[in-house]
């Protein structure tokens, strides 16, 4: 069984929801990332979304744009990110890792080359923000062959027929974008999310994760009551940004946010 499936199965048995933090690899410097990933798992993260820095993160708000710029200032490339995953795997063989980024960094490596290297490093899934299902036949085929889940986004604006095709093409989990906007945008309407998730459920048995707009314990808890997974990013990346001058504090400080959300979700 894949690590992602396995993870959701265990959570279901335990009656808990997945907490899925996002951080950008190499932010603010490459040495921080692996200890940070371990610390987040320790604090209660179930799945890790690891951002691959890109020069033009079109779908991201200022917080993650700046994270990409910090990571790129140290030259963090996709192959370096795979090295970080491999290093993480030397002491954690269980926690799923999903890479999140933009297509072009994968495209230069070639799909098959990327898939082989990613699998070997211990990557479980990939979410390429700018690769919708219509353009991804070959991509999905290659990733499937390497047993890497391809995770897609669904949005409030996604209509029924596209929900269906996204659910057919994707595997691992579905990432529902809770609001119209870029990452780091403000308010989230839990009732509207719940309504849309009901519609999605009619088309898939995959776990449904919700991201964008989750910024504190209360919103994490509220979303966990209507979804299978809570994805949190900008709040964590913001904390990292505040600690650029004291990088040794990053794992503990970010973990504190995770622990708070974990407790709120499990309460």
């Amino acid at each position: 069984m894949s690590r992602i499936k396995d993870c959701f199965a265990r959570l279901e048995t335990a009656g808990r929801k997945a907490l899925i933090p996002y951080v950008t690899a190499g932010d603010p410097s490459p040495a921080v990332t692996v200890p940070l990933l371990h610390a987040m798992v320790e604090a209660g993260a179930d799945i890790l979304e690891l951002g691959v820095p890109f020069s033009d993160p079109m779908a991201d708000g200022p917080v993650i744009q700046l994270a990409c710029e910090r990571a790129l200032s140290h030259g963090t490339r996709l192959l370096d990110v795979l090295d970080m995953v491999a290093e993480f795997r030397t002491t954690d063989s269980q926690t799923p890792i999903v890479l999140m980024g933009y297509l072009n960094t994968v495209e230069v490596l070639g799909y098959a080359n990327f898939a082989a290297r990613a699998k070997a490093a211990g990557v479980d899934g990939i979410l390429t923000v700018d690769l919708p299902p219509e353009e991804s036949d070959e991509f999905v085929e290659v990733m499937r062959a390497a047993e890497i889940d391809v995770i897609y986004l669904l949005a409030p604006t996604t209509d029924e027929s596209r929900i269906k095709s996204v659910c057919e093409k994707g595997s691992g989990y579905v990432y529902y974008v809770s609001l119209k906007g870029v990452t780091g945008s403000a308010a989230l309407d839990v009732a509207a999310v719940e309504e849309k998730l009901k519609q999605v459920r009619r088309h898939t048995d995959m776990p449904l994760g919700v991201g964008f707009g989750i910024r504190d314990d209360a919103s994490a808890r509220a979303v966990s009551q209507v979804a299978d997974g809570v994805i949190v990013g900008s709040v964590l990346v913001n904390r990292i940004a505040e600690l650029v001058a004291q990088p040794e504090q990053i794992p503990a400080q970010v973990s504190r946010i995770i622990a708070g959300m974990r407790a709120a979700m499990d309460a």
Binding site: P132, L153, G181
Partner: peptide
């Protein structure tokens, strides 16, 4: 009809823009 000029073009955007 999917916006392709040979291998080029297409619609490589986040799901949030597809509807628009």
């Amino acid at each position: 009809d999917r916006g392709h000029f040979g291998p080029y073009g297409g619609r490589f955007v986040s799901e949030t823009l597809i509807g628009a």
